[in-house]
């Protein structure tokens, strides 16, 4: 059983509060993604869990063990770094074996684990090479194999795919998902890429300037963003936020804004009851659908429409938000349930 419990972690560098009392409960074998833009504190949180940074206050527990003040090597965690950190002066074999050698594992076990993880990551033919002779993708595989070889309680990954080119990233993402599912290791994964987060995570923690805005399943994050921030960070294009002035129907108490995703509209080319007349500003054909930027009474928003609807810039289109997809937010940006 390897749970991770993060309790009221605070951290500041100089005057900047990087983490403002963050708490997180990660279940055994769960794949958690810390998602947020750069500077939101996600990497710092990961590094605090790893022990590479020390929190100002708060506790970290791995399983039942409080590890807050233990050095990294006593936490039984493994980590994959953004720029791989594959030791240049060691062969691929020695890189993967490094953690096991540090634990003084018997030679037989080292050989077994190295060969098993290398085969898993499809680098078993590269064991005698040095990292200078490998491509970026191969180095990334070595870094993952090195982490898996030590059979850690917790696997930490800091933007592991962000240095790969787009095609390779897609391929590695799929591969990582199956490898990590099979390894059943509790994993914390940091990324700023929402697609990566949605595709890999069991649960996503969306971070916003030092706080966790929402920690939930990917579907929940997408369908019921807990804050205006989450709605506007997740989804491409993001959720529309519209003031309810011209809303027909009931508006809940305290509602300041309506949140509605671009694909959640009824669309009509003719005027109908309760439909909003919008002016199309631009139309982008995206293959599977078209995306409109539109305007109504000075408010801008985005709408996804099927390819069949013929529309030009400057035309008027009639929209009505789907009732079950409407989400209401307070003036402070919190969802009204």
């Amino acid at each position: 059983m390897t749970t991770i419990t993060v309790e009221n972690i605070k951290k500041s560098f100089g005057d900047a509060d990087i983490l403002k009392s963050v708490s997180l409960d990660i279940k055994d074998q769960e794949f958690t993604v810390l998602l947020g833009p750069s500077g939101c504190g996600k990497s710092t949180l990961l590094r605090i869990i790893a022990g590479l940074e020390t929190q100002d206050s708060g506790t970290i527990k791995i399983g039942d063990r409080v590890v807050s003040h233990l050095p990294p090597r006593e936490r039984n965690v493994a980590m994959v770094f953004q720029n791989y950190a594959v030791f240049p002066h060691m062969t691929v074999f020695e890189n993967i074996a490094f953690g096991l050698r540090m634990k003084k594992a018997p030679e037989k076990k080292i050989k077994e684990n190295v060969e098993r993880t290398a085969a898993l990551m499809h680098i078993d033919h590269l064991l005698k090479r040095y990292s200078g002779q490998l491509s970026g993708g191969q180095r990334q595989r070595v870094a993952v194999a090195r982490a898996l070889a030590v059979e850690p309680d917790v696997l930490l990954m800091d933007e592991p795919l962000s240095n790969l080119d787009a095609l390779l990233r897609l391929q590695m993402r799929a591969e990582l998902k199956s490898v990590l599912e099979a390894s059943k290791t509790t994993t914390v994964y940091v990324t700023h890429d929402q697609v990566e987060a949605m595709s890999l995570a069991d649960r996503i923690a969306v971070m916003n300037s030092g706080r966790i805005d929402q920690y939930d399943f990917p579907d929940e994050i997408y369908n019921n963003p807990a804050t205006e921030y989450v709605g506007s960070f997740i989804g491409n294009p993001p959720m529309n936020f519209i003031s309810p002035d011209f809303q027909v129907g009931t508006v809940p108490n305290g509602a300041f804004q309506l949140g509605i995703r671009p694909e959640d509209f009824h669309i009509s080319k003719e005027q109908r009851d309760n439909y909003w007349p919008i002016t199309v500003l631009t139309r982008e054909k995206l293959g599977s659908h078209q995306q409109l930027s539109a305007e109504l009474n000075g408010q801008l928003f985005r709408v996804n429409i099927p390819n069949e609807i013929e529309i030009e810039s400057g035309n008027t289109l009639y929209l009505m938000p789907k009732e079950d997809k409407k989400r209401w937010y307070t003036e402070g940006g919190k969802i009204i349930l």
Partner: peptide, 15 residues
């Protein structure tokens, strides 16, 4: 020497 090498070594058990 990039500091990541030290961090990786530290994570994987090197004092």
């Amino acid at each position: 020497i990039p500091k990541e090498y030290y961090e990786a070594a530290e994570i994987f058990g090197a004092n």
